[in-house]
Simulated assay, not measured.
Amino acid sequence: MNPAKVDRQRLRQLTDLPNIGPAMAADLRLLDILQPAQLKGRDPYQLYTALCQRTGQRHDPCVIDVFISVTRFMAGEDPRPWWDYTAERKARWQEG
């Protein structure tokens, strides 16, 4: 969902989260995350690693940015576009 349209009071399904559409929701379900609340306290880098292992392929590193955005949102931060986290990810995580 577009971060500007997120309503924290209406988080019932994964696609109610900022930056999560059907494809990313499917990726989260592969990780046994079925509800937004299950993202509280999760590490976005571990989620990415688990997704790559589960699917047997390396996903675009921008997926980490999306995972950062939703885990931070669930920790109480305001919703932000996923690309706001790209510089942070690049500074922390060396891409292959």
Rank of each mutant, 00 (worst) to 15 (best):
M1L: 15
N2S: 10
N2L: 08
N2G: 08
P3R: 07
P3E: 02
P3A: 03
A4C: 00
K5R: 13
K5T: 14
V6I: 08
V6P: 02
R8F: 09
Q9Y: 13
Q9G: 08
Q9S: 14
R10P: 03
R10Y: 08
L11P: 09
L11I: 07
L11M: 15
R12F: 06
Q13T: 10
L14K: 07
L14H: 05
D16G: 03
D16Q: 03
P18N: 05
N19L: 00
N19I: 00
I20W: 14
I20V: 15
I20H: 14
G21H: 08
G21L: 03
P22G: 08
P22M: 00
A23F: 12
A23I: 12
M24G: 02
M24L: 09
A25C: 04
A25F: 12
A26K: 13
D27R: 14
R29I: 08
D32M: 10
D32V: 01
I33N: 01
I33L: 07
I33E: 04
L34T: 07
Q35K: 14
P36K: 13
P36V: 09
P36D: 06
A37V: 15
L39D: 00
L39Y: 02
K40D: 01
G41E: 00
R42S: 09
D43Q: 01
D43F: 13
P44Y: 01
P44E: 00
Y45W: 13
Y45M: 10
Q46A: 09
Q46C: 10
Y48L: 01
T49L: 05
T49R: 09
A50Y: 14
A50Q: 13
L51G: 04
L51Y: 05
C52P: 02
Q53M: 06
T55Q: 15
T55L: 11
Q57T: 15
R58F: 15
H59N: 04
H59S: 03
D60G: 05
D60F: 06
P61K: 04
P61M: 02
P61H: 03
P61E: 03
C62V: 12
C62P: 02
V63W: 11
V63S: 06
I64D: 02
I64T: 03
D65L: 14
V66E: 00
F67P: 05
F67E: 03
I68R: 01
I68K: 00
I68L: 07
S69L: 14
S69A: 15
S69R: 06
S69P: 15
S69H: 10
S69K: 09
V70M: 03
V70F: 11
R72Y: 10
R72C: 04
R72V: 00
R72M: 01
F73M: 06
F73K: 03
F73E: 04
M74N: 06
M74C: 02
M74T: 04
G76T: 00
E77P: 15
E77Q: 12
E77N: 09
D78G: 09
D78Q: 14
P79M: 02
P79I: 00
P81K: 05
P81T: 07
W83P: 07
D84E: 14
Y85D: 04
A87P: 13
E88C: 01
E88F: 07
R89K: 08
K90N: 14
A91M: 10
A91N: 10
R92M: 11
R92K: 11
R92N: 04
W93C: 04
Q94I: 00
E95S: 10
E95A: 14
G96S: 09
G96C: 04
